[in-house]
């Protein structure tokens, strides 16, 4: 496979890989490194890539596993990212995104969710995959995906309502 063909395959979903990585790793730089690594890994096996039914789903699963490994080794090395004082030095767009205070709050709530719920929420509410696709990517049962999703959405809702009523009161 030529470089151009590979980029054509990977192009439509590389942002999704990045967003999933960022959801898990939080830091933009780390997510970029992770995405790069995954793309290189995919490229390295570009001969066998065609045998996968969906390269996208395969890449998503790779991203999931890669990031979870990263997190695990980080925890083991006692180098856990401190989310609260992590400062995003992103683009103009980033500032626009986070301009809204309560949107920022959602971000914080999401960071406190368990990894699996983070991923499910990300893949459903941001990437709009259906349950079977998510189940396939995360190597879960579709029913488990639904349960995790419902739980995640409710957690976010409850915390938002709490915050909202504090804001008013």
């Amino acid at each position: 496979m030529q470089q151009a063909d590979f980029l054509k395959i990977v192009g439509p979903f590389q942002d999704k890989l990045f967003r999933l990585a960022k959801r898990l790793l939080v830091s933009r730089e780390e997510a970029e490194d992770a995405t790069q690594e995954i793309l290189l890994k995919l490229w390295a096996k570009n001969k066998s890539i065609e045998q996968y039914k969906s390269v996208e789903a395969f890449a998503m699963t790779m991203t999931k596993n890669f990031c979870l490994d990263r997190l695990k080794s980080k925890q083991a090395g006692n180098l856990k990212l401190v989310h609260t004082n992590y400062e995003e030095k992103g683009s103009l767009l980033q500032k626009k995104i986070e301009a809204n205070d309560s949107v920022k709050w959602v971000q914080k709530i999401m960071e406190d969710l368990p990894e699996q719920q983070k991923m499910v929420l990300q893949l459903r509410d941001v990437e709009e995959y259906d349950y079977d696709e998510i189940a396939n990517m995360l190597e879960m049962k579709p029913t488990a995906v639904r349960v995790a999703l419902s739980r995640a959405r409710k957690t976010v809702r409850d915390k938002l309502i709490k915050k909202h009523s504090y804001g008013i009161g």
């Binding site: 995104i97 949107v103 709050w105 809702r157 938002l160 309502i161």
Partner: peptide
């Protein structure tokens, strides 16, 4: 109270590698 949630999801789609 739900505005922020959906806005967050909407914004999150914009993130680019």
């Amino acid at each position: 109270q739900y505005v922020a949630l959906f806005k967050f999801m909407d914004n999150a789609k914009e993130e680019r590698f």
